[in-house]
Simulated assay, not measured.
Amino acid sequence: MTAVLTRRALNRATLARQHLDVRVRMTAVAMVEHLVGMQAQAPWPPYTGLWTRIEGFGHEELGDALTSRRLVRVLLHRGTVHLVSAADCLALRPLVRPVLVRGHRAEVRAAFADAERIARLTREVLDARGPLTPTELGAALAELLPGTPANVLADVARTTVALVQVPPRAVWGAGGATRYATA
């Protein structure tokens, strides 16, 4: 026998699966892993999203998870920044990389012919200098790869290497510019 869900039952099941019907007792890291990430293009929506789902959630928990890098903000699903666990970042990022590469404009896609070299240099630059803003990273790469615009190099770097946005960005009450480090 085949069961058919009504629209309302399907809606309720979806809300329950997303923990949007009743708050639960769960850590922020466990919730983000359960959801396989949360959209985090802007820094603050994950705080509301977790507060909506987790009983007793306080902003300090997410700030601590970001600072300790148990949760990270990284370019992921649909080419936007998502909040994921460190483990999910390392597992998911290689899977979405080909899709991210295909989604770029022609000017950037042309630079992907040198993507592995750009990726290697990105890791070297960030290892040597520490976290950099997109502008700083692009400028550093342009010094090493003259002839390609810095903004294109930064786009290729962000697409080919799992670059996480490091705190204080997205830490409640701290803020700050986007700075990248390798995952």
Score class of each variant (00 low, 15 high):
23 R>E: 11
145 L>Y: 08
63 G>Q: 00
180 Y>L: 04
43 P>W: 03
169 R>L: 01
172 W>G: 00
7 R>P: 12
46 P>K: 14
40 A>M: 04
5 L>F: 13
123 R>D: 11
124 E>G: 04
183 A>E: 14
99 V>Y: 11
121 L>H: 07
149 P>W: 04
66 L>W: 00
15 L>N: 09
36 V>T: 13
109 R>C: 09
60 E>P: 03
49 G>D: 06
64 D>K: 00
127 D>L: 11
28 A>F: 02
29 V>H: 02
9 A>I: 07
170 A>T: 05
107 E>T: 14
118 I>W: 06
41 Q>A: 01
132 L>H: 00
106 A>I: 09
171 V>I: 07
4 V>Q: 07
169 R>S: 01
63 G>T: 00
72 V>M: 09
147 G>N: 12
19 H>T: 09
69 R>A: 04
85 S>E: 04
144 L>M: 14
166 V>W: 05
92 L>S: 14
22 V>E: 13
107 E>H: 05
57 F>P: 03
31 M>Q: 07
8 R>L: 15
175 G>V: 06
6 T>F: 09
162 A>D: 12
96 V>E: 08
130 G>Q: 02
2 T>K: 12
163 L>C: 00
76 L>K: 02
134 P>K: 05
77 H>G: 02
160 T>K: 09
141 L>P: 12
120 R>P: 11
105 R>P: 03
170 A>Y: 02
173 G>T: 07
54 I>Q: 03
36 V>F: 06
115 A>Q: 11
67 T>V: 01
12 R>Y: 06
47 Y>C: 10
91 A>F: 01
55 E>C: 05
117 R>E: 15
41 Q>P: 00
31 M>T: 07
2 T>F: 10
180 Y>F: 13
47 Y>V: 06
29 V>T: 10
66 L>P: 00
115 A>S: 14
32 V>P: 05
151 N>A: 11
97 R>N: 08
29 V>Y: 01
108 V>Q: 08
84 V>G: 10
182 T>K: 10
30 A>Y: 01
179 R>L: 00
9 A>W: 08
48 T>G: 04
138 G>F: 13
55 E>G: 04
169 R>Y: 04
17 R>F: 06
175 G>S: 08
101 V>Q: 15
122 T>W: 14
57 F>Y: 07
122 T>P: 12
87 A>P: 01
8 R>I: 11
120 R>S: 15
178 T>A: 06
133 T>V: 06
121 L>P: 04
69 R>T: 02
45 P>N: 12
152 V>C: 09
26 M>T: 05
114 D>S: 13
124 E>A: 12
143 E>C: 10
82 H>W: 09
72 V>E: 12
132 L>I: 02
112 F>Y: 12
12 R>K: 10
126 L>W: 05
13 A>V: 10
47 Y>L: 11
51 W>S: 14
39 Q>L: 10
66 L>N: 01
78 R>I: 00
94 P>A: 03
166 V>T: 08
169 R>Q: 02
158 R>A: 12
128 A>Q: 09
155 D>F: 07
183 A>T: 11
150 A>W: 13
163 L>I: 01
